[in-house]
């Protein structure tokens, strides 16, 4: 499949009537996406600077008192933690799936099915697993002879539960992306390296990692952006304490009086996501667009 996407059909190009026609075919879809995303984004940013119809920075000046800094910090903690957990699990899955073993079909079904699970279903199940008193996770711990854990005992542990619970639905996608990269490495490369005396670790750092580095950056982009957007999971698992940016936005949006505050917080989130995307594209994925 890959080769079809790499641009070797490039030749001198003249815009003809036919090209305009082709572009017109694409126009409705493009217009839909622009209309329903850029305009709302502009509306939010514009509204965030308005107080009683006049330009003002008031909404931003009061944001810190609504918990802005803590919510940014919490959002970053959850996002980074969840990304690391998912990348590590996904790498393990992808590497295991490269090897032949009995039951590999069933294994790949088990780890891929959660991809289709609704976030809210996942949030519900993990709310049953992690309850402070009893609950299924503590049930397992007690059965194995450990002490039960109070999962929601501090902001950090609350955020930890959210970042862990996110693995279930989202690891499969990362695993599929990484698996695509791993399966493109020629097995003869590993054989040659083995013959030359390279150990498992050095084969991993010298062949596997370089092969999947661009895919890791793609996974970081795709998943990282959605990670900043997690909403249902924290809403169900921890509610509004501790706040993350999305719950801060929603909490203020749901009361009419504080709606302008939510616009300002939404603008902050927009800026963070744009900065993150540009950062990842610059360090990793930019060459994808250079063609």
């Amino acid at each position: 499949m890959d080769s079809e996407f790499s641009g070797n059909r490039e030749k001198r190009f003249k815009i003809t009537g036919r090209h305009v026609l082709y572009f017109l075919f694409a126009l409705p879809a493009i217009a839909y996406v622009i209309g329903l995303s850029i305009f709302p984004a502009i509306t939010v940013v514009y509204q965030s600077f308005l107080v009683a119809g006049k330009f003002s920075l008031y909404n931003y000046s009061v944001l810190p008192s609504y918990g802005l800094y803590a919510s940014i910090e919490n959002t970053l903690i959850v996002s980074v933690g969840a990304l690391l957990i998912q990348l590590m699990l996904a790498l393990a899955i992808a590497m295991v799936m490269m090897k032949p073993f009995a039951g590999s079909k069933i294994f790949s079904s088990i780890v891929i099915i959660p991809f289709g699970i609704s976030t809210i279903v996942s949030a519900f199940i993990f709310s049953l697993i992690f309850t402070n008193v009893g609950g299924f996770a503590n049930g397992v711990l007690v059965a194995l002879g450990f002490k039960p854990v109070i999962w929601f005992s501090s902001s950090i542990s609350d955020l930890g539960v959210v970042m862990f619970s996110d693995f279930w639905k989202n690891t499969p996608l990362v695993a599929l992306i990484l698996y695509g990269g791993l399966s493109s490495v020629s097995p003869t490369l590993y054989e040659a390296a083995s013959v030359d005396g390279a150990g498992a670790l050095s084969r991993f750092t010298h062949i596997t990692l370089p092969a999947i580095a661009p895919l890791i950056s793609i996974a970081l982009l795709v998943r990282g952006v959605s990670e900043f957007n997690i909403f249902a999971l924290p809403l169900v698992l921890i509610g509004y304490h501790p706040l993350i940016l999305n719950t801060l936005i929603y909490e203020n949006y749901s009361t009419l009086a504080t709606r302008p505050i939510s616009y300002a917080a939404a603008t902050v989130l927009l800026i963070i996501i744009m900065a993150y995307s540009i950062f990842v594209l610059k360090i990793g994925g930019a060459k994808q667009y250079a063609r």
Binding site: A29, I34, A266, I273
Partner: peptide, 16 residues
């Protein structure tokens, strides 16, 4: 199209 799609869902959903 994909970059546009990275706009935060909640930010877009509210004005929509």
């Amino acid at each position: 199209l994909f970059i546009i799609n990275m706009m935060p869902g909640l930010v877009i959903a509210i004005p929509i």
